[in-house]
Every structure is written in C-alpha cells, then in structure tokens.
C-alpha cells in the first residue's frame, strides 16, 4: 500500500535526504502494517516517538495503517 509519512524535528535526522515537501512517499508497504513497523522500517527508534497522527488524529504505535494514509511522527515538542 501507499503512505505519506511526515517527520518532525529530530526524527528527520534518521532518514537521510528527508524532504519536508512533500514528505516521504512510500509504496510497497505490506497491508496491515502498524505504525511501529513502518517506523522501524525507517530506522526511527520507537522510544523517540512521542506523538503519532494518522490523517490528523492522534493514534498509537500499534495502530494499523490503511492504504493512502498520511502518517505524521513527532518527538516531544512544545512551545506556546
């Protein structure tokens, strides 16, 4: 299946040549993959991921992705 993966701040360091626009366009991701599996495939350590969003909604690392999903991963971030 296809996914669009968006990475934030330090998580970008794990993916050489990450282009924020448009993000990572992945194809050939096995159906029923979880967020954790996709992150592992990108060599992003799970313990660095604090916030997971699928299509703009907060989700968990164990959640299963669907074809065409937009996945965003964030470490701890904050401001105000």
């Amino acid at each position: 299946m296809h996914l669009l993966v968006k990475l934030s701040t330090t998580l970008r360091d794990h993916v050489p040549d990450y282009q924020p626009n448009p993000g990572l366009e992945l194809s050939d991701i096995p159906e029923e993959s979880t967020v954790a599996q996709v992150a592992a495939g990108l060599n992003i350590p799970a313990e660095e991921i604090k916030i997971v969003m699928i299509n703009g909604r907060q989700c968990a690392l164990e959640d299963v992705l669907r074809d065409g999903d937009r996945l965003a991963l964030f470490p701890a971030v904050g401001g105000g």
């Binding site: 968006k6 934030s8 701040t9 330090t10 604090k50 916030i51 969003m53 703009g56 965003a72 964030f74 470490p75 701890a76 971030v77 904050g78 401001g79 105000g80």
Partner: peptide, 21 residues
Amino acid sequence: PITSKGLAQYGTAVLVNILQE
C-alpha cells in the same frame, strides 16, 4: 525533552508543523 532541548533547538515555532498536522 521540551525544556532541555526542544525549545532551544526549534523555538516555539516548532508548533507550526504539529498544528498544521
């Protein structure tokens, strides 16, 4: 992590992408 590193490296502007998302 936010008060030790996050804010120093990216400022409060770090919020742009997460609010967008």
